[in-house]
Design a binder for these strands. Structure first.
Lengths: 212, 212
DNA sequence: TAGATTGTTAATCGATTAACAATC
DNA sequence: TAGATTGTTAATCGATTAACAATC
């Protein structure tokens, strides 16, 4: 079990998939699942699933399997989905606006309080009911509103500067969409979304298959 | 070397990062780099970098290192960035529009020809100069325009149906943003962007650090 | 040539899979 | 109880790192 030993990142990144499939089962009214059945659904081996879950505790029952509702709820806790995190978006371009509207936020317990931009043309506009504010007011806003998360959707050139601002203002983590490795203090939590790398990977496999 | 043996996906996913840093060096006018220097920049070990590159050929020179321009260009070829791929976006919501406007496309050699939606309110509108068309016309459009790539930015519920349509129309690959495991023929190339899983992972580390 | 750095083999490490005793 | 399936240890596999001969 060893609840306190670091769980490997490869395990962590499988948890959301378990959580998603358990949610589906819950919606279907299924309340019991075995590692073998989960294996068929997720494509991971039953052995790996049992290993993964046992990093966090023994959620199953010999001879029975796992209770869907229980396991779903436990994974939700482990993933921190019960806590509400307060976020702001730096960069109110297309991506920033899409992110601000992103429905998946609620499921993960995130709440976008504001967008920030330096372009006077968009400052003052609202995305749904989220206001776009002047980036110069961002530090104060973050401090006054206890913002936990900064989201970087700016172009590459301004990403580091925005991250610095976030850090100065005291955020706990950064969700970064800019194609750059942000320079941050060691203990800062950064999660990157690498759209360009994903696209390059797609391109690699296309070339491999079709343009030998 | 073994240019024909399958290169592991973990290696492939590091290539874009090499490519990016080499591009930076190129812009700075630096024309020589050692695996050790690349290691400092990327955070991968020098040994790993040499191993990775040698999956595709011996690009370096003993005692010298790598020629930046040469290596950059070789990686570009390996990643298929020289080929122009024609893409369409299914789902003209915020994310679809953001994707259609995404500058990174050009770098990866992708061109978005059209967006498709079923909502009559958006059909006919243009994002920059890319028209939003009725999703019912998508198959014909793909066939007539030799579209290579379908991009799924729809909500989860319609994602599988759109993927099926893409496949029927004959695309070579799918870039999927919907939080679902698409059911596709074995040889179909699918690259997923899992925004929700990324967010869950961020949430996990926040909880781990702050809400023990 | 001497120094530097690759390409590549060998050693290590970590992650996945297999196996099975424990137990519901 | 008998059957099923977990939790967990052991075996295997693959990926990373170390080492060094080759060579520019």
């Amino acid at each position: 079990m060893d609840r306190d030993n670091k769980v490997s990142i490869t395990v962590i990144r499988r948890l959301p998939k378990y959580y998603r499939y358990l949610g589906d089962l819950l919606n279907k009214g299924i309340n019991r699942i075995s590692s073998q059945e989960l294996s068929k659904m997720t494509g991971f081996t039953a052995s790996q699933i049992r290993q993964d879950l046992n990093n966090f505790g023994g959620f199953g029952q010999q001879g029975y399997g796992y209770n869907v509702e229980e396991l779903h709820s436990q994974l939700g806790k482990i993933l921190g989905l019960e806590t509400i995190y307060r976020a702001v978006v730096a960069g109110a371009g297309n991506l920033g606006q899409a992110i601000a509207n992103y429905k998946g936020f609620e499921d993960a317990g995130f709440k976008v309080l504001s967008l920030f931009d330096k372009n006077p043309k968009v400052i003052g506009l609202k995305i749904r009911d989220i206001e776009i504010r002047d980036v110069d007011t961002m530090v104060d806003f973050i401090k006054e509103n206890n913002v936990d998360i900064g989201i970087v959707t700016s172009p590459r050139d301004s990403a580091q500067e925005l991250a610095d601002t976030f850090i100065k203002a005291g955020v706990k983590g950064i969700w970064n969409f800019a194609p750059i490795d942000l320079n941050v203090p060691e203990d800062m939590i950064v999660e990157n979304v690498r759209l360009n790398e994903s696209l390059f990977t797609l391109s690699y496999f296309l070339r491999e298959k079709y343009n030998k």
